[in-house]
Design a binder for these strands. Structure first.
Length: 352
DNA sequence: CGATCCCGCCATCTT
DNA sequence: AAGATGGCGGGATCG
């Protein structure tokens, strides 16, 4: 039909980060809303496989929850602090300062299972279902993602290098091959969290790539007052608004040869347009600017306002994570400062 | 070039 | 068996 000239193919536009931004823009509405995998893939113009990546990572933070086959539900940002608290608790519980690879409950289960299996097979090799700790689950994106977050929540330093993170996500093995695989995953996860402004990519003085936890602290005041969008690194000319890009199916990455199959997932055969939407007022409220999307200026004050409000809400709830008995006075002072900032911003916003 | 990390093959788990 | 999930790493892009 329309001759969308083959876009040269820009890897950046296909990134998981952008996808997540769009995903959030699309689903950040009422808690409880269902999210169909095919539906999401269709709307976002990506393969189903990618949706799995997204929901698995978001689920690790409590943003969405699996409801059943092909179905997830939106739990909302209000759920995140709770999830983080739990992660922190878990992380602190095991090996103070060391990253936990297996949760306590998982360990108990494992022990129990092992005992049982021993009773039944006192002899020969262990050909039983799971000889090793169910390494499958242990390597899942969901699990890695949680451990990645624990790393930040349980560390005094909010700056973590790629190396540290990789080793942590990895059991400890230095196997370069295993390492390489793990780093790939780390990049995936980090990109997602970066686009959500949960973390930020930087470098150590020694130039090594590192990530900084933004959860509450580093989200500076300036960032609030100056419409995040404008000061986001790369000032991309056009980032297209959601909805304009539903079909970026073409312009693949130019594999060896292209002729062939094309498994169209969703898109047109998702005949039924989402589900009926009972709620439909004020579509703007759902349009916050996450990450690098959003062309500065377009929607004007509303987006900015909502963006600020959303971030402030996030920061406020996350602040509650820090209980006096768990954190040092200095950090508390900082949080108090943010509290003030929060109030100030709120006032400022109200005046608009 | 080394650092990133998209893409989709295909092993596994569910139905 | 068919469909749903999602590990994994080849190799294209980026800086």
């Amino acid at each position: 039909m329309d001759s969308l000239g083959l876009q040269p193919y820009c890897r950046k536009e296909k990134s998981l980060g952008v996808l997540v931004s769009n995903f959030l823009r699309l689903y950040n509405r009422d808690v409880g809303d269902l999210i169909g995998l095919d539906e999401a893939a269709g709307y976002l113009g990506v393969e189903r496989r990618r949706i799995y990546d997204v929901v698995n990572i978001l689920e690790s933070i409590g943003l969405v929850a699996r409801r059943g086959k092909n179905q997830y539900s939106w739990r909302g940002f209000g759920e995140v602090p709770r999830a983080l608290t739990e992660l922190k608790r878990q992380g602190m519980g095991e090996k103070f300062g060391i990253i936990p690879y297996v949760t306590k409950s998982e360990m108990v289960l494992y022990e129990k299972e092992r005992e049982e299996s021993l009773e039944f097979t006192p002899e020969d090799q262990e050909n039983s279902p799971s000889p090793k700790l169910d390494s499958k689950k242990e390597r899942s994106l969901w699990h890695l993602s949680q451990n990645f977050v624990k790393l930040f929540l349980c560390s005094d330093d909010d700056l973590i290098t790629l190396d540290e993170a990789t080793k942590a996500l990895l059991h400890d093995s230095q196997d370069p091959l295993n390492m390489r695989t793990k780093v790939r995953r780390l990049y995936d996860i980090a990109n997602v969290f970066s686009s959500m402004n949960l973390i930020e990519k930087t470098h150590t003085p020694e130039k090594k790539t590192a990530y900084r936890w933004l959860g509450a602290r580093a989200i500076s005041v300036n960032r609030f007052l100056t419409a995040s969008a404008s000061l986001c690194d790369r000032s991309e000319p056009k980032k297209r608004a959601f909805g304009t890009e539903l079909t970026n199916f073409n312009a693949k990455r130019n594999k060896a040869e292209c002729s062939k199959d094309r498994k169209h997932y969703g898109n047109q055969n998702t005949s039924s347009v989402i589900k009926e939407e009972p709620y439909d007022e004020n579509p703007d409220v759902k349009n916050f600017a996450f990450g690098s999307s959003t062309p500065a200026g377009t929607s004007g004050m509303n987006n900015i306002g909502n963006n600020i409000r959303l971030r402030l809400g996030f920061i406020e709830t996350i602040s509650s994570l820090y209980q006096p008995q768990y954190c040092n006075p200095a950090l508390f002072g900082l949080l108090a400062h943010y509290k003030e900032t929060f109030e100030a911003c709120q006032e400022e916003f109200r005046r608009k």
